[in-house]
Protein backbone atom coordinates (compact mmCIF):
# COMPACT_ATOMS: atom_id res chain seq x y z
CA UNK A 1 0.00 0.00 0.00
CA UNK A 2 1.12 3.54 -0.67
CA UNK A 3 -0.38 6.18 1.55
CA UNK A 4 0.05 9.79 0.59
CA UNK A 5 -0.89 12.16 3.35
CA UNK A 6 -1.33 15.92 3.15
CA UNK A 7 1.42 16.17 0.61
CA UNK A 8 2.54 19.62 -0.52
CA UNK A 9 5.34 20.54 -2.84
CA UNK A 10 6.55 23.93 -3.91
CA UNK A 11 9.44 24.89 -6.09
CA UNK A 12 11.48 28.01 -5.88
CA UNK A 13 11.17 30.10 -8.98
CA UNK A 14 12.62 33.45 -9.88
CA UNK A 15 9.44 35.10 -8.70
CA UNK A 16 9.26 33.35 -5.38
CA UNK A 17 7.95 29.94 -4.39
CA UNK A 18 5.33 28.27 -6.57
CA UNK A 19 3.16 25.61 -5.08
CA UNK A 20 2.74 22.64 -7.40
CA UNK A 21 0.95 20.14 -5.19
CA UNK A 22 -1.55 21.24 -2.58
CA UNK A 23 -2.48 18.98 0.24
CA UNK A 24 -2.79 15.71 -1.66
CA UNK A 25 -4.14 12.76 0.26
CA UNK A 26 -4.61 9.45 -1.50
CA UNK A 27 -4.10 5.74 -0.97
CA UNK A 28 -3.12 3.14 -3.53
CA UNK A 29 -3.68 -0.42 -2.40
CA UNK A 30 -1.81 -3.40 -3.71
CA UNK A 31 -3.36 -4.49 -6.99
CA UNK A 32 -4.87 -1.13 -7.74
CA UNK A 33 -3.94 0.51 -11.02
CA UNK A 34 -4.21 4.26 -10.96
CA UNK A 35 -3.92 6.53 -13.97
CA UNK A 36 -3.17 10.21 -13.54
CA UNK A 37 -4.36 12.86 -15.96
CA UNK A 38 -3.30 16.47 -15.98
CA UNK A 39 -2.30 19.30 -18.28
CA UNK A 40 1.32 20.12 -19.00
CA UNK A 41 2.99 21.48 -15.91
CA UNK A 42 0.26 20.27 -13.57
CA UNK A 43 2.79 18.39 -11.44
CA UNK A 44 2.20 14.80 -12.58
CA UNK A 45 5.85 13.91 -12.91
CA UNK A 46 6.67 15.66 -9.67
CA UNK A 47 4.02 13.61 -7.92
CA UNK A 48 5.40 10.41 -9.44
CA UNK A 49 8.92 11.31 -8.36
CA UNK A 50 7.80 12.03 -4.82
CA UNK A 51 5.92 8.73 -4.68
CA UNK A 52 9.07 7.06 -5.98
CA UNK A 53 11.00 8.62 -3.14
CA UNK A 54 13.56 10.44 -5.23
CA UNK A 55 12.34 13.88 -4.37
CA UNK A 56 11.30 15.18 -0.99
CA UNK A 57 7.91 16.75 -0.40
CA UNK A 58 7.83 20.22 1.12
CA UNK A 59 5.45 18.91 3.74
CA UNK A 60 3.33 15.85 4.28
CA UNK A 61 4.36 12.24 3.94
CA UNK A 62 4.43 9.22 1.67
CA UNK A 63 4.34 5.84 3.39
CA UNK A 64 5.24 2.81 1.34
CA UNK A 65 4.48 -0.64 2.61
CA UNK A 66 5.17 -2.29 -0.71
CA UNK A 67 8.18 -2.12 -2.98
CA UNK A 68 7.94 0.66 -5.52
CA UNK A 69 9.87 0.86 -8.76
CA UNK A 70 11.87 3.87 -9.78
CA UNK A 71 9.86 6.21 -12.01
CA UNK A 72 10.10 4.82 -15.52
CA UNK A 73 10.38 7.95 -17.61
CA UNK A 74 11.93 9.22 -20.82
CA UNK A 75 15.16 9.77 -19.05
CA UNK A 76 16.49 8.99 -15.66
CA UNK A 77 17.49 5.78 -14.03
CA UNK A 78 20.01 4.97 -16.75
CA UNK A 79 23.53 6.32 -16.95
CA UNK A 80 24.20 7.71 -20.42
CA UNK A 81 27.89 6.94 -20.40
CA UNK A 82 27.43 3.26 -19.66
CA UNK A 83 26.33 0.59 -22.08
CA UNK A 84 22.92 -0.99 -21.72
CA UNK A 85 24.42 -4.08 -20.15
CA UNK A 86 26.50 -2.11 -17.66
CA UNK A 87 23.37 -0.24 -16.66
CA UNK A 88 21.66 -3.56 -16.13
CA UNK A 89 24.62 -4.75 -14.10
CA UNK A 90 24.40 -1.68 -11.89
CA UNK A 91 20.69 -2.06 -11.32
CA UNK A 92 21.06 -5.77 -10.62
CA UNK A 93 23.60 -4.98 -7.92
CA UNK A 94 21.44 -2.35 -6.31
CA UNK A 95 18.25 -4.38 -6.30
CA UNK A 96 19.99 -7.72 -5.73
CA UNK A 97 18.90 -9.48 -8.88
CA UNK A 98 20.80 -12.30 -10.55
CA UNK A 99 22.59 -10.76 -13.51
CA UNK A 100 22.78 -13.78 -15.80
CA UNK A 101 19.06 -14.45 -15.73
CA UNK A 102 18.29 -10.76 -15.99
CA UNK A 103 20.56 -10.40 -18.99
CA UNK A 104 18.82 -13.15 -20.88
CA UNK A 105 15.45 -11.63 -20.16
CA UNK A 106 16.53 -8.12 -21.17
CA UNK A 107 18.08 -9.37 -24.39
CA UNK A 108 14.94 -11.23 -25.28
CA UNK A 109 12.50 -8.55 -24.26
CA UNK A 110 14.21 -5.37 -25.43
CA UNK A 111 15.31 -6.80 -28.79
CA UNK A 112 18.15 -4.32 -28.80
CA UNK A 113 20.69 -6.92 -29.89
CA UNK A 114 24.22 -5.60 -30.26
CA UNK A 115 23.10 -2.17 -29.17
CA UNK A 116 23.13 -3.40 -25.59
CA UNK A 117 26.90 -3.02 -25.76
CA UNK A 118 26.68 0.61 -26.87
CA UNK A 119 26.48 3.57 -24.50
CA UNK A 120 22.92 4.48 -23.62
CA UNK A 121 23.45 8.08 -24.70
CA UNK A 122 23.60 6.88 -28.29
CA UNK A 123 20.12 5.33 -28.03
CA UNK A 124 17.00 6.86 -29.49
CA UNK A 125 14.12 7.72 -27.14
CA UNK A 126 12.31 4.56 -28.15
CA UNK A 127 15.34 2.36 -27.61
CA UNK A 128 15.90 3.92 -24.23
CA UNK A 129 12.32 3.21 -23.26
CA UNK A 130 12.72 -0.39 -24.38
CA UNK A 131 15.80 -0.78 -22.25
CA UNK A 132 14.26 0.91 -19.22
CA UNK A 133 11.16 -1.27 -19.43
CA UNK A 134 13.10 -4.44 -20.04
CA UNK A 135 15.34 -3.77 -17.05
CA UNK A 136 12.45 -2.84 -14.80
CA UNK A 137 10.75 -6.12 -15.69
CA UNK A 138 13.68 -8.05 -14.28
CA UNK A 139 13.19 -6.58 -10.81
CA UNK A 140 10.11 -7.63 -8.90
CA UNK A 141 8.28 -4.58 -7.69
CA UNK A 142 4.86 -4.48 -6.09
CA UNK A 143 4.12 -1.20 -7.74
CA UNK A 144 5.35 0.24 -11.01
CA UNK A 145 5.56 3.98 -11.57
CA UNK A 146 5.25 4.82 -15.22
CA UNK A 147 5.65 8.36 -16.45
CA UNK A 148 4.34 8.58 -20.00
CA UNK A 149 6.79 6.26 -21.64
CA UNK A 150 4.32 4.32 -23.67
CA UNK A 151 4.31 7.20 -26.12
CA UNK A 152 7.72 6.45 -27.57
CA UNK A 153 7.72 2.70 -28.08
CA UNK A 154 6.48 1.39 -31.40
CA UNK A 155 3.16 -0.35 -31.47
CA UNK A 156 4.50 -3.88 -31.46
CA UNK A 157 6.73 -3.21 -28.49
CA UNK A 158 3.95 -1.44 -26.62
CA UNK A 159 1.73 -4.46 -27.05
CA UNK A 160 4.46 -6.78 -25.94
CA UNK A 161 5.15 -4.58 -22.96
CA UNK A 162 1.49 -4.32 -22.07
CA UNK A 163 1.06 -8.07 -22.08
CA UNK A 164 4.13 -8.60 -19.98
CA UNK A 165 3.24 -5.88 -17.52
CA UNK A 166 -0.37 -6.90 -17.14
CA UNK A 167 0.70 -10.50 -16.80
CA UNK A 168 3.22 -9.59 -14.18
CA UNK A 169 1.10 -7.07 -12.34
CA UNK A 170 -2.16 -8.96 -12.11
CA UNK A 171 -2.09 -8.64 -8.35
CA UNK A 172 0.26 -5.68 -8.26
CA UNK A 173 -0.09 -1.95 -8.69
CA UNK A 174 0.61 0.59 -11.35
CA UNK A 175 0.64 4.34 -11.04
CA UNK A 176 0.76 5.79 -14.49
CA UNK A 177 0.81 9.20 -16.08
CA UNK A 178 -0.42 9.44 -19.62
CA UNK A 179 -2.14 11.79 -22.00
CA UNK A 180 -3.54 8.89 -23.96
CA UNK A 181 -6.97 7.85 -22.81
CA UNK A 182 -6.66 4.54 -24.60
CA UNK A 183 -3.55 3.65 -22.65
CA UNK A 184 -5.19 4.56 -19.37
CA UNK A 185 -8.26 2.48 -20.18
CA UNK A 186 -6.09 -0.49 -21.02
CA UNK A 187 -3.91 -0.43 -17.94
CA UNK A 188 -5.83 1.24 -15.17
CA UNK A 189 -8.93 0.55 -13.13
CA UNK A 190 -9.08 3.97 -11.52
CA UNK A 191 -8.06 7.41 -12.66
CA UNK A 192 -7.30 10.72 -11.07
CA UNK A 193 -7.14 14.24 -12.38
CA UNK A 194 -4.45 16.58 -11.17
CA UNK A 195 -5.44 20.19 -11.59
CA UNK A 196 -4.26 23.34 -9.82
CA UNK A 197 -2.32 21.19 -7.39
CA UNK A 198 -5.35 19.18 -6.28
CA UNK A 199 -5.76 15.48 -7.03
CA UNK A 200 -9.28 14.15 -7.53
CA UNK A 201 -9.66 10.40 -7.77
CA UNK A 202 -12.52 8.87 -9.79
CA UNK A 203 -13.56 5.25 -9.55
CA UNK A 204 -14.65 5.29 -13.15
CA UNK A 205 -12.08 6.24 -15.75
CA UNK A 206 -14.83 7.66 -17.94
CA UNK A 207 -15.71 10.26 -15.32
CA UNK A 208 -12.08 11.19 -14.92
CA UNK A 209 -11.63 11.70 -18.64
CA UNK A 210 -14.85 13.69 -18.87
CA UNK A 211 -13.82 16.02 -16.06
CA UNK A 212 -10.30 16.33 -17.38
CA UNK A 213 -11.59 17.37 -20.79
CA UNK A 214 -13.75 20.03 -19.20
CA UNK A 215 -10.79 21.40 -17.29
CA UNK A 216 -8.54 21.16 -20.31
CA UNK A 217 -10.79 23.02 -22.70
CA UNK A 218 -12.34 25.29 -20.11
CA UNK A 219 -9.21 27.28 -19.56
CA UNK A 220 -6.08 28.54 -21.16
CA UNK A 221 -3.02 27.25 -19.40
CA UNK A 222 -0.94 30.00 -17.90
CA UNK A 223 2.14 28.93 -16.04
Amino acid sequence: MIRIKELCKSYRTRRGPRQILKDITCTVHKGEKLGILGCNGAGKSTLIRIIGGIENPTSGSVTRTMSVSWPLAFQGGLAGGLSGLDNLRFICRIYQVDFVAARASVEEFSELGNYLQEPVKSYSAGMRARLAFAISMTVDFDCYLIDEVSAVGDRRFNEKFKNRLLDKTRDRSIIMVSHFYGVLREYCNRAAVLDAGVLRVYDDIKDAIHNYEQILYGKTITF
Binding site: I54, P71, G77, A79, G80, I91
Partner: peptide, 11 residues
Protein backbone atom coordinates in the same frame (compact mmCIF):
# COMPACT_ATOMS: atom_id res chain seq x y z
CA UNK B 1 27.39 13.77 -13.57
CA UNK B 2 25.38 11.02 -11.90
CA UNK B 3 22.04 12.71 -11.53
CA UNK B 4 20.21 10.04 -13.50
CA UNK B 5 21.25 7.41 -10.97
CA UNK B 6 19.37 9.26 -8.26
CA UNK B 7 16.23 7.90 -9.90
CA UNK B 8 16.88 4.82 -7.84
CA UNK B 9 15.61 5.51 -4.38
CA UNK B 10 18.42 3.60 -2.71
CA UNK B 11 21.06 5.77 -4.32
Amino acid sequence: ANRSLLYHRYV
